[in-house]
């Protein structure tokens, strides 16, 4: 803008001086012609920048400028801030390693004035998946208990925003518990599904083209399905225990799960908590009279056990 202002001012001054000299019409015409030619000449040699309409991360590109003479070239982008001297009119070659990060890049070329342009670098082909799976430990047969989110990234860790189809699989034995192809939207794909019926490690796989990401969810038995109590009197009192405790899918309930035994006798109630060890919970109740014993774990109640008094 300052260059244009100064040129217009120079042209006006020239016209004034010629008017004073008396050679009116021809002089003005000549001056105008010279002025226009000078302007056109200057415009032709003022720099302009041409940047590519699209670019891919890590790939080299060329920026062209017009004009002549030396200028300062600036490139600012994500992770990049370069400055060097260039010759106007010669192509500027940017190496791929200067363009690894996807995003916007500002190009500024300054000689007497500065001109700028912006171009965008997009992510390349997917090269890896970030795969988040929840939870790490889940009871079996739970509705919508397992979920996963996948983000595809290119080799320079740029999020790939173009739609890609990700295949989510939960292989189980010979078959597959879950298998679904999900296209990414805005660089993300996700799924949610129920947990399987068997306790143990569950593989969760997200696959895209030739690569995949695997996570493991530990499936554990759900709450006990029923409790069966047995008991007998001994010298110290009553030894009461459960039969092997399973969930409703037949998986043994993990050791450490608490079973509460409650004894109701003439003197009142007493409760003993016992952890399951090797599938069975045991407790000893010191009661000499007749007693009714019940057991509970979580929301499940066991059978009532009636034990007579000490002979």
């Amino acid at each position: 803008m300052s260059w244009l202002t100064s040129t217009v001012w120079a042209g006006t001054s020239m016209r004034r001086s010629l008017l004073i000299s008396g050679a009116r019409f021809s002089a003005i015409s000549a001056a105008s012609a010279i002025f226009l030619a000078a302007c056109l000449g200057q415009i032709c040699w003022a720099q302009s920048i041409t940047v590519p309409s699209s670019a891919v991360a890590g790939e080299p590109l060329t920026i062209t400028t017009t004009g002549s003479g030396k200028a300062t070239f600036y490139l600012l982008g994500q992770g990049v801030s370069n400055k060097h001297e260039i010759s106007l009119g010669e192509p500027i070659k940017l190496r791929g390693d200067a363009l690894r990060n996807a995003g916007d890049y500002h190009v500024i070329v300054c000689s007497d004035t500065c001109h700028s342009a912006t171009f965008y670098v997009s992510a390349g082909k997917p090269a890896s998946l970030t795969f988040l799976v929840h939870p790490s430990r889940v009871p079996v047969s739970q509705q919508d208990a397992v979920s996963g989110v996948a983000f595809p990234f290119d080799q320079f860790h740029n999020l790939v925003l173009t739609p890609e189809t990700i295949n989510f699989q939960l292989p189980a034995g010979n078959g597959s518990l879950f298998n679904r192809s999900v296209p990414t939207q805005a660089g993300v794909a996700w799924f949610r599904t129920s947990s399987g019926k068997s306790a143990g490690a569950l593989q969760v796989v997200a696959a895209l083209d030739d690569f995949n990401a695997r996570r493991v969810v530990q499936q554990v038995a759900s709450d006990p399905c029923n409790l069966r109590l047995t008991g007998q009197r001994n010298a110290q009192g009553i030894l009461v225990q459960t039969e092997p405790v399973h969930d409703c899918s037949g998986n043994p309930v993990p050791d450490g799960t608490i079973v509460s035994f409650t004894a109701t006798a003439a003197g009142g109630k007493s409760t003993v908590d016992a952890p399951i060890k090797k599938g069975i919970a045991r407790a000893e109740i010191e009661e000499s009279g007749p007693v009714v014993i019940s057991g509970a774990s979580g929301v499940v109640l066991g059978n009532e056990l009636r034990v007579g008094g000490k002979p």
Partner: peptide, 15 residues
Amino acid sequence: TSLWQSVISQQRSGL
């Protein structure tokens, strides 16, 4: 990481 690189790069170039 990329912002860190931007700052380091700016420090070098004086921008």
